[in-house]
Simulated scan of single mutants.
Amino acid sequence: MDVRGAQVGDNNTQINHYGGPPDESAWLLVDAERILGADHPDTLDTRRNLAHWRGLAGDPDAAVAGLDAVLADYVRVLGPDHPDTMQVRENLVHWRPEGLEALIADRTRVLGADHPHTVRLLQ
């Protein structure tokens, strides 16, 4: 395992730490897929983070496309009500607000109206 591979598990920190355009940090995804496999939660998180970061870097269409693609895999691997799946949907709402009402309804159903993740959507 190389140095990069040893660090794949902490991909949120890496994306912020290594900086630069998202495409320059795409090696994180390559290493995650190679070491952990395409369906590992950390690999899915890396895909989600890179997609969201593309939007923050000025390409909202790439963010939506990437988040749509990884959302399907989160649903398949973790299920529609898993907190990580809901987080991808929240990231999508950032770029495509029309999904907000459905996300609020699902978060309320799963977590309750007073849960901080539900309340955050209402602010």
Score class of each variant (00 low, 15 high):
residue 112 G to N: 10
residue 102 A to T: 07
residue 117 H to Q: 12
residue 39 D to V: 07
residue 113 A to D: 14
residue 84 D to H: 10
residue 37 G to Q: 06
residue 61 D to A: 15
residue 48 R to K: 13
residue 88 V to W: 11
residue 29 L to S: 09
residue 31 D to N: 07
residue 94 H to P: 00
residue 50 L to F: 08
residue 103 L to F: 05
residue 109 R to P: 05
residue 46 T to I: 06
residue 99 G to Q: 03
residue 51 A to N: 08
residue 77 V to I: 15
residue 104 I to F: 01
residue 98 E to V: 04
residue 75 V to P: 03
residue 79 G to W: 11
residue 85 T to A: 04
residue 99 G to L: 03
residue 72 A to I: 12
residue 115 H to W: 06
residue 107 R to E: 03
residue 49 N to A: 11
residue 27 W to H: 11
residue 36 L to F: 10
residue 22 P to E: 10
residue 92 L to F: 08
residue 70 V to H: 08
residue 27 W to A: 07
residue 55 G to C: 08
residue 117 H to I: 00
residue 42 D to G: 00
residue 102 A to H: 01
residue 114 D to H: 11
residue 76 R to D: 13
residue 104 I to M: 03
residue 82 H to I: 00
residue 68 D to Y: 11
residue 96 R to D: 07
residue 103 L to A: 03
residue 82 H to G: 00
residue 41 P to I: 06
residue 84 D to I: 00
residue 81 D to L: 11
residue 111 L to T: 01
residue 23 D to I: 13
residue 94 H to Q: 05
residue 75 V to N: 05
residue 33 E to Y: 05
residue 45 D to C: 02
residue 74 Y to F: 15
residue 46 T to F: 02
residue 93 V to A: 09
residue 32 A to Y: 03
residue 100 L to H: 08
residue 45 D to E: 10
residue 100 L to F: 00
residue 64 V to E: 14
residue 49 N to Y: 08
residue 18 Y to N: 06
residue 106 D to R: 15
residue 51 A to I: 10
